[in-house]
């Protein structure tokens, strides 16, 4: 990947602590279940003063045409149905971390549900293991770390040069910003492509999901787990009753979170 380095230095004189400082880090989210990958555009917005951040998945449409190119036909293994990213009726997945309150609020799709839900959970406990490897990403020196989160193992590359203990999606808690994180089977990858630090409030703001979707009832993560169970069972029965020959159906979930043992067993 070619790196265009465009450093603009602005001296901002800030009097007092009145203005909020934000950092905007843009990632691309690559889902690669074999064959051709799906690339989605995402952004992490970090508010230093309030110790909170939001991670938004803008989807496929926001990538400008010039930055897209052709690839050859599929000959790999699985392909994800991309339609669900294009036609969400304007719904965007969003994840907000409130570090002071130790909580995480998500706005995302739940298996079998037509509309997105707003889900409240405790910030998941991530037991990072620091590894020796280092890597240069976007000219930042990064070190590798490993974690297991909800059924998947991930490798993350973080840089202490950016002292933000945050990262894409639900990942956080390393001594520097996570510039890249990838599941060990390479199916899910978040990688940075743009970093903007110390931007003043004029350009950004984080609206709490509760206020953004006032008509949506906030559910707990246990509610989400139960919804998934219920819808999976409904789908299994539906397929069973439409199926003239086979008498056993298995539904496999292949999303980024495979199990919720940390929630069921208590953090």
């Amino acid at each position: 990947m070619k790196i265009l380095i465009n450093i603009a230095l602005f001296l901002t004189f800030i009097f007092g602590f009145g203005q909020n400082q934000y950092s905007e880090i843009k990632y691309y989210f690559k889902i690669n279940n074999g064959g051709s990958p799906v690339i989605l555009d995402c952004a992490l917005l970090y508010n230093e003063n309030d110790n909170k951040s939001t991670f938004i998945n803008f989807g496929f449409n926001s990538i400008p045409e010039e930055q897209k190119t052709e690839i050859d036909d599929i000959n790999g293994d699985l392909l994800v149905n991309v339609e669900k990213y294009d036609d969400n009726n304007g719904q965007k997945p969003e994840y907000q971390k409130f570090f002071l309150k130790d909580s995480l609020v998500s706005h995302e799709s739940v298996y079998g549900e037509k509309k997105y839900h707003v889900i409240l959970e405790k910030l998941p406990t991530l037991r990072w293991e620091i590894l020796n490897d280092t890597l240069n990403i976007l000219n930042f020196k990064t070190q590798k770390a490993k974690v297991n989160f909800r059924g998947r193992d991930y490798f993350a590359w973080f840089s202490t040069e950016i002292k933000i203990s945050d990262g894409p999606y639900k990942f956080y808690g390393l001594p520097g910003l996570i510039l890249k994180i990838q599941s060990t089977d390479s199916k899910y990858t978040f990688e940075v492509y743009s970093v903007k630090l110390n931007i003043s409030e004029k350009h950004f703001s984080i609206t709490n999901l509760k206020e953004k979707y006032p008509n949506k009832k906030i559910i707990s993560i246990n509610d989400k787990v139960n919804l998934i169970k219920k819808n999976t069972e409904k789908e299994r029965k539906f397929r069973l009753s439409n199926n003239p020959n086979a008498t056993e159906i298995k539904i496999e979930h292949s999303g980024i979170e495979l199990n919720y043992e940390d929630v069921i067993n208590g953090n």
Partner: peptide
């Protein structure tokens, strides 16, 4: 505290 902007390029893929 200075404003820092570093931009790379998103890999090109058409799905």
């Amino acid at each position: 505290l200075q404003e820092i902007i570093i931009v790379g390029k998103i890999p090109k893929f058409k799905i």
